[in-house]
Design a protein around this nucleic acid. Sequence first.
DNA 1: GATAGGGTACTCGGATACCTTTTGTCCGAGTGTGCGAGG
DNA 2: CCTCGCACACTCGGACAAAAGGTATCCGAGTACCCTATC
Lengths: 158, 158
Amino acid sequence: MSGGVEWALHCCVVLTGATEPVPAARLAAFHDVSPTYLAKQLQALSRAGLVRSAQGQAGGYQLTRDPQAITVLDVVEAVDGRQSAFVCTEIRQRGPFAATPEQCRVPCGIASVMYDADRAWRDSLRATTIADLAGRVGRDVGPETLPRAREWMAGRSG
Amino acid sequence: MSGGVEWALHCCVVLTGATEPVPAARLAAFHDVSPTYLAKQLQALSRAGLVRSAQGQAGGYQLTRDPQAITVLDVVEAVDGRQSAFVCTEIRQRGPFAATPEQCRVPCGIASVMYDADRAWRDSLRATTIADLAGRVGRDVGPETLPRAREWMAGRSG
DNA sequence: GATAGGGTACTCGGATACCTTTTGTCCGAGTGTGCGAGG
DNA sequence: CCTCGCACACTCGGACAAAAGGTATCCGAGTACCCTATC
């Protein structure tokens, strides 16, 4: 899986408490990661409609909807794509015992199992929202962290 | 995910009906795939202890245990490794609001969600055995296919 | 003093190189088989 | 005719290149703000 997924999720959590657009450079400084590469991930989120970008001075990114309405799966699919990690190459249609195309209307057993597992994975990711993650941050590192981070986001110098 | 997983699974299904070792070259011819690259996947299965390799004339690969005792997850982990697709880089410990190491005894919320999803994925793959897949092949393409394939495996020419 | 215009600084977005992982290939080590020579 | 030894052919196993996708970067397009000049 792309490592950018982790960055994107952290950014979404941080954006939870933002009241005004946050520039990509500030998000990168907050997490101490490459600003240019993080920009790429944020563009993916923007294309997926999870965040709204504003250009110009005082521009940046902000969530388009309530954090409770954004699932972890939404972010993962925005960055890594929507298709299953397993891709069936239809081996059964090759070789001396190739199956006929009409026998291949339904996915083969191997593909079915892999697709089912992929569905279970996505279902699990869908069960948690960005709001859940933000709430857990408060419990893990203290409730005052998120407001302080919000204040830092609004400030000018790092 | 590695495309070799699909090849390895198909090979395990075919080996279900084999009564004597099957060479890698023959398995490759059966599936019409690259013999040398398939050999790599079979080596991974051998390292994991799922198949036993026999060298010399009349050598080849055969399953080490009953197909009912080999899960799809076993094969996937043998080829693609056992670690989660998501790797936490501990972003929370970086930047101006870095969490202290003692706050990081437990995985962060993001990592937890990803690990839970990974566990659900693996649980799903563990629920199906190679024997199940072999049985489904019989239902999909006809019960006489597997015995004929077995006969072809034992024969000398393609 | 209020307003319109322009310049500036800041922002995102896509096009562009680099590098690690995956894919694909080759050759050497090891082993069981079959043949031949000897008893 | 039986047995022992040897050479062979076939097998796997790990080491070695090529290609693709992920990683990282840069520069151009666009926009809001602020300063200035004018009414």
